[in-house]
Amino acid sequence: MNGKTTNVGIVIVSHSPLVARGIADMVRQMVGDCVPLAWSGGNVHGELGTDAGGILKAIEAAWSDAGVAVFVDLGGAETNSEMAIEMLGLPRAALVSICNAPLVEGAVIAAAEASGGASLAKVVATAEELSP
């Protein structure tokens, strides 16, 4: 959002606020502040679940003109993330990708890749290499 970095942003989405925040902490430890990072965990009341509005806010918070890679845990997290990306609207929606990768390892590896200035396509591909 602030344009301080041209690195790809990372968003972590989990049904659990604790999981989402914990992974964000791990990513931060790895790459510091040079990658825009945000998380959304839990439903609107902070209980286990996912929240399209919260995910939308997280994408905006981690916004980078280079794009944003989104990492999700289970079913509803993916469906709600797709909904949030749609609500973001074009042209920004085209710069957001949901990664088919394990949540913890995927987010950390993607952030490391992003911190070196890799493109969104490269960040996503590197994380997705982890998928069986």
């Binding site: 439903n43 609107v44 009341h45 209980e47 679940g49 996912t50 929240d51 399209a52 509005g53 079913g75 509803g76 469906t79 709600n80 797709e82 909904m83």
Partner: peptide
Amino acid sequence: MNVGGAAGP
């Protein structure tokens, strides 16, 4: 915005 599961979308 409120259901909070896959049923919402």
